[in-house]
Design a protein around this nucleic acid. Structure first.
Lengths: 213, 213
DNA sequence: GAAGAAATGCAACTGAGTAACAAAAGTATC
DNA sequence: GATACTTTTGTTACTCAGTTGCATTTCTTC
């Protein structure tokens, strides 16, 4: 999976990177993103400011890199789907599985640290703004995978479907988090999330026309 | 429409604002967004730096405020649609009208300054990133209008349809611009844009299921 | 025309991000 | 195990976006 170039040097790099990110997120959660300076973070992590920026290109990346792992997940799901499944069916199944596992990417995770982390991202404009950039790459990847899966569909439809699916997925994740953060019990939130996911995919599959739109 | 609080003071304010924005965009088009500092802009516009920031909250706004006029247009179209039209039908008709008028918002405008302006926005990461924030507000407004138009639809479906429509509209606009910027003649680009708009709305209305997704 | 309000300029500041260069630490070679 | 080489780090100083406080000018109002 991930290259482990081994050696003492690489090990220390990983540790430093982890230490910086942990320190930063800890401070952000305690005091708010805008009220912590990178200089403070660097000092708390016992590292100089230039070093900090050698590990993370921007202040926002200190937070958002944790979400980068799941980038391109939708595209992978489409590519690796078993033969009988349509792309949308595979995406739906995968999404339901992630919901059942209470995976943070779905927004449905009751862990207090995760909830606080998501609140940090959603409540900080510069973070949620940057998050949209990530999502853009996700759309690109999914569009490519869809075009590959349906060679006869042209270039436009896959792109549009990718925009729609990723947009909807993101919207549902935000909704899931909002409910949990608002105090809704997990089991209830999970039932709602499942129902909404099924409804959303049905909407994507069957269109909005039949519903009066 | 727009308040005109009259008076010599208000007039000068409008003029100053216009002068600052024009100066800034001129410099950006000439040298690139990242290679012009706000200090330069302020100097060229014969204004101090704090004054510049009293008119525009960020460097990006100097460019993007020109797109703010059309914010909430989709929501308005839905609210003011004539009785027999469904929301999607009204949005489609309006979009086709804007295309016929070669309205810059559609991306289909051959004016060299407009083309260059859009290139500036699309090719500058911090600008296209900020543009997404605008679009977010557009989605919110359309979601509200759709929920109003279909009281029985619940809260979820209107939101999802809004996400889908605005996302798709944006994608098509980018495509239109790319073609014109790449040298495609306007008439041809217009025909393609019309066809794609119709196809996109058909996709939204009828769903992706029937197309193998 | 004078009093009050609003807009501007000036100077100095904070905070993100970068560049140059020197010091230190890890790796490889004999 | 010392030596030469490469990578990582710290220090200092810088650029640039955006802000603040205060004095000054400019418009409005009476």
């Amino acid at each position: 999976m991930t290259d482990e170039p081994e050696g003492l040097r690489a090990l220390k790099k990983q540790r430093t990177r982890q230490a910086i990110a942990d320190t930063a997120i800890g401070l952000f959660l305690r005091n708010g993103f805008d009220r912590v300076s990178v200089a403070e973070i660097a000092a708390a992590a016992e590292v100089s400011k230039p070093t900090l920026f050698r590990y993370f290109p921007t202040k926002e990346e200190l937070v958002l890199h944790r979400m980068a792992d799941h980038l391109g997940e939708a595209a992978r799901v489409v590519r690796e789907r078993p033969a009988p499944l349509t792309p949308l069916a595979a995406l739906e199944r995968h999404q339901l599985e992630r919901l059942a596992a209470h995976d943070p990417v779905t927004g449905l995770c009751e862990e207090p640290e995760v909830l606080a982390f998501m609140r940090l991202v959603y409540d900080t404009p510069s973070l949620s703004s940057h998050l949209l950039d990530y999502i853009g790459h996700d759309i690109d990847a999914l569009a490519a995978a869809l075009a590959e899966a349906l060679p006869g569909a042209g270039a436009l439809a896959p792109r549009l479907v990718a925009v729609q699916f990723i947009g909807v997925r993101q919207e549902l994740a935000r909704l899931n988090w909002q409910r949990l953060d608002g105090g809704t019990p997990v089991e209830q939130a999970h039932r709602l999330a499942v129902a909404e996911t099924v409804e959303a995919v049905a909407l994507l599959r069957g269109g909005a026309g039949g519903r009066g739109f």
